[in-house]
Design a protein around this nucleic acid. Structure first.
Lengths: 254, 254
DNA sequence: TACTATTGTCTATATTTGAGACAATAAATT
DNA sequence: AATTTATTGTCTCAAATATAGACAATAGTA
């Protein structure tokens, strides 16, 4: 097991990341599964080096897991209840994996360090799912995307974290105009709408949605996209990044 | 100097509180001033006990400073840049107060503890200013209310903290319908409007503002308030706390 | 009794939102 | 080549909401 050099990190403080991606009309979250019996899933997380800012630490963790350097991310909440600790999950893990752990994969010191009460800073990230090459750590059996409304069981309060992240995303989406971080470079209006619908979990009227988005004046219309389907070809759009736009109206209410 | 028992606290993690109150048409912040030469002002802050949740810690700090138990409070952001430390401010304080500190008010260990890099969780609180009895600590020369747009110089990034807290307050105000925490039990409509104006730092139209607020259906109209002024007496209102209201429209746009 | 300052509310207008309609069109089908 | 189908882009109109102007009511003053 990877042994954190305890003194290099801030003690009892961690970062957990909710990494959102979008594919097949589904808002999804990237979740690793630990390589132990018992199906333990846990959000990508890590600690903060002494000489490292918290946003910087979050970026490092995100880059380790996605391979992407420039990632949109945001703090959404700190989780810090008094009894918040890994201990119950780790005890259960050890119980179910006595054999695997025989070769002292946890020493006592390490176990004490990792099972102390932890305060965790929640970050959410928005990525273009096509750019992501999900990275396992040596502890992971797998890492994959789960629809945000069909997540696997997760340890501790990680399920609540995703819920809280999604809530914050919904609140910020129109204000900060960040949805396009979830889409590839170019996209059709239908794709934008389906993205919004999957984030808000409700339908929008097509005509009015298109008007609202275009009225934001942040999209550049490109050539048509011929899909091979027997219907009118939609335009492709690109987000004009230079425009730090005057987002004022809520598309969420369209 | 009060010596924190280091092991009782989570290391390198602190809480800073922006306590908002409202009086004389001014949104104000409660700021203590340290009892040292050099006019050092710093937001009320503290550390987190090992067996204490972070919200709980924030409540303790707030009660210590205001004397109020049931206080509206909310996390707004974590401040955790890499070089974030008290050291520069403390060195300057020591430099200006050599004499006072002669009687070893800092020992080395304590100084090292307190000047390490700190991550701080920002909370803001909304209080009825009339209920507050501001409490100095033994370190403080004074503690008083400053208009949010006329704060004294403060140490470290505390000015940015207030700014960030105010931004969050503005964003949350309509969504969460929390403004009434800043007012006394009963109030006139004019007082509500002036409160909103001081928070958003802009004027609202009186007729439409009143309509908006009343349409929220969270206020109970009481008897008139005879002020002695030569004009129609305004009604008093009370916030109906039991209503966890269906706030949907932004008063911020009235 | 007239006057002043402020309050509560109404109305008219402008703006935004929501729903329906329809022409345009890319490809498949005849 | 004409017809059919599914979808797109946009227009219009009605409903809801926001903004601005107006005015009567009224507590005290002159």
């Amino acid at each position: 097991m990877h042994s954190p050099s305890e003194q290099d990190y801030i003690q009892q403080l961690s970062i957990d990341c909710v990494i959102f991606g979008y594919q097949d009309s589904q808002l999804s979250v990237l979740v690793p599964k630990l390589n132990f019996r018992g199906d333990f899933c846990a959000l990508p997380s890590g600690f903060i080096y002494q000489n490292e800012g918290i946003d910087q630490a979050a970026r490092r963790i995100l880059e380790d897991r996605t391979g992407i350097k420039d990632i949109y991310l945001e703090q959404f909440r700190v989780f810090g209840d008094a009894p918040r600790s890994n201990i119950r999950f780790l005890e259960r893990l050890i119980e179910l994996n006595e054999d695997k752990l025989g070769d002292k994969r946890f020493d006592r010191k390490e176990f004490d360090w990792i099972t102390r009460r932890f305060v965790s800073i929640g970050y959410y990230a928005l990525v273009d799912i096509n750019k992501v090459v999900p990275q396992k750590t040596e502890l992971d059996e797998s890492i994959s995307w789960y629809p945000v409304r069909a997540l696997p069981p997760m340890i501790m309060d990680h399920h609540e974290m995703v819920h809280s992240a999604l809530e914050t995303l919904q609140l910020n989406l129109d204000q900060k105009l960040i949805a396009f971080n979830l889409l590839p470079e170019t996209f059709t209006m239908r794709e934008v709408q389906e993205l919004y619908e999957s984030i808000f979990d409700r339908a929008f009227a097509r005509n009015n949605f298109q008007k609202k988005i275009l009225d934001l004046n942040v999209l550049e219309r490109l050539e048509k996209k011929f899909t091979g389907a027997a219907n009118k070809a939609p335009f492709l759009y690109r987000f004009r990044n230079e425009v730090h736009a005057q987002a004022s109206t809520d598309v969420g209410a369209a």
